[in-house]
Nucleic acid binder design. Structure first.
Lengths: 341, 341
DNA sequence: GTGAAAGCGCTAACAA
DNA sequence: TTGTTAGCGCTTTCAC
């Protein structure tokens, strides 16, 4: 391949200097229309392609933003990635992805990697392992770069946040079951001490209390957020003397496991009600269709991107704490809870 | 924040030169153990973080690879992203993501963006819109950068390929149905002229011919690869005088739509057999569980990464055309086709 | 084993 | 409106 053409090549051809070329290419005001056109034409002719790495070195901006999250395998995060990349791209930003795979150590490596790549900011969601130690996130701010935390947030982390109202999510799911006439409502969720799951659980309890029902401790199952988790948990619940008449799954996969276990006992929702969280794209189409709480992944990605752009813009103004962006969860009632009450 | 520390700061503190510091940091042979340690220690003390942008400018390597694909919303691609990023990371590469959203124009922009970012290579899967015009991919090679195409490949594109044997995939699905005693096998797929879908269809026809069955043209439905597509297609099939006794869905979502339409007619597989492609993670858990052909997304991502690393290594050796990597599809027989034959 | 110095491709003062 | 000239932070010859 021929050597790559640079702005020097363009300058030489046109008998002007590189600064003029640079100005023309970046469409900077103080340039005559004629030279601008000449430069652009020559650039095309010489097959010029700007080297962003070089321009980053001088300008200090890479127009790359780092996205750090547990795993693209989890559909919620895949949707956020989709939305983030799509939106940021339209503002000239590229997306550098780093998955933590739920490991704290990997999360730390990720922050280092992204920072070394000189990203203009980081949008992150915490790993399940992340508890006390959040020093790696502090470093992002120490370097003066915007840090946005979404969905899996953290109490001690002073950074702008985008999430849904998780307590309301738990409340909505429970209230819906209550409205449908269910009374003995169980809840299968994760054993990890992640804030959003605690909050949903609190919403669950709140709804029960409002209905004058005191939460039954044996109805709370802590396990894994997987089909297996839902399956095992349900089997445990079915062994109770006082069986629940409805089960909330920590996410839609858990709900799938619940339905599976029920099916083996020849029980089909909504005779026992089942509801999940996340609105995975299969939920609407399985039989019976699964009631769920939509977590607004697409919207969340977009809000993260908007927030980032906003922070970047006012960078040199006041660095005051941003208001958290709290999205509202959406109840999607479907067959799996549609009991005639 | 304080100004970022550079190798100059380290050099000054230690009364040595930046070249020595650079050598120490990069662990280059010709350096004494003692200075190496001193540098590393000082680096830590000063909170030094290497600037990869700067090193990229001189070395010409960014250790970033560009991943260009239709959408992270499509679970197959999300899995490939997951796998790619995970594997590449372990070899020191970061992943820059660009989604085409099935648009040719966006695909072209994507190539430009990635090239401007000076990625060390591009791993791509074509958009549905991409047909004749593949000039943008040629540019990658013109710049002397490795280009790998996976899954959605293209006949006229001379680049190393990673895919599954799609004809075999179609064949396997059809053969499985035949083995289960189904004879009137319909096929709902996409109307887009994408190679892999054509090949699967050819596998379908091959299996039928081998069984002495001549494909019935009214059993081939061309529509969209969505739940809707499966639903609509199935309703059309059910209106035929001579109804099929089994339906192949172009992917698992299509299969979901097929099952939905059947359910509305009070038909439950396997009384009419249903099989999909992709092994989406819900397929195993819906009721009835869905037979499908696994497309090895995880393996595919890993093979792409391996191929990339291999090419990068031998870069300056012979640039001979690489053998395509063809993975074998895996039949996963489940309840939706489990008819007693 | 270490230092000196050029330069990667571009931007951005400062001059003119 | 355009040119001159330093760098940005690092790597890499070529000396010593």
């Amino acid at each position: 391949m021929a050597k790559k053409t640079t702005i020097y090549d363009i300058a030489k051809e046109l008998n002007i200097t590189v600064s003029t070329v640079s100005r023309a290419l970046n469409n900077i005001s103080t340039i005559s229309e004629s030279t601008r056109e000449a430069v652009l034409e020559m650039a095309k002719k010489l097959n010029y392609r700007p080297n962003k790495v070089a321009s980053s070195l001088t300008s200090g901006k890479t127009y790359i933003i780092g996205v750090l999250l547990p795993s693209a395998q989890i559909q919620f995060f895949a949707s956020v990635i989709h939305s983030l990349e799509k939106y940021l791209k339209s503002f000239g930003y590229s997306t550098l992805l780093y998955q933590t795979n739920e490991s704290l150590e990997s999360e730390k490596d990720g922050i280092s990697t992204l920072l070394e790549a000189q990203v203009d900011g980081i949008i992150a969601s915490l790993s399940l392992e992340t508890e006390e130690d959040i020093s790696h996130f502090e470093k992002v701010k120490e370097e003066g770069k915007p840090l946005i935390i979404f969905d899996r947030t953290h109490d001690n982390l002073d950074a702008p946040v985008v999430k849904i109202n998780d307590e309301q999510a738990g409340y909505l799911a429970t209230k819906h079951l209550l409205d449908k006439g269910y009374r003995k409502i169980a809840y299968i969720t994760t054993k990890h001490r992640i804030k959003i799951f605690r909050e949903r659980y609190e919403g669950y309890q709140k709804a029960l209390r409002e209905a004058g029902i005191s939460p039954n401790p044996s109805y709370a199952i802590l396990g894994e957020l997987t089909v297996e988790g839902g399956y095992t948990g349900t089997n445990n619940l079915l062994r109770l003397k006082d069986r629940p008449d409805a089960i909330i799954g920590g996410d839609d996969y858990v709900a799938l496991g619940i339905i599976k276990a029920l099916h083996e006992q020849h029980i089909t929702p909504p005779s026992i009600g089942v509801i999940g969280f996340a609105n995975q794209n299969f939920s609407e189409h399985i039989i019976p269709s699964l009631s769920t709480i939509d977590q607004q992944a697409i919207q969340m990605g977009k809000e993260c991107a908007k927030l980032f752009l906003k922070i970047i813009e006012r960078k040199h103004l006041e660095e005051k704490t941003m208001e958290p962006v709290i999205l509202s969860p959406i109840l999607l009632p479907r067959e799996s809870t549609n009991r005639k009450s």
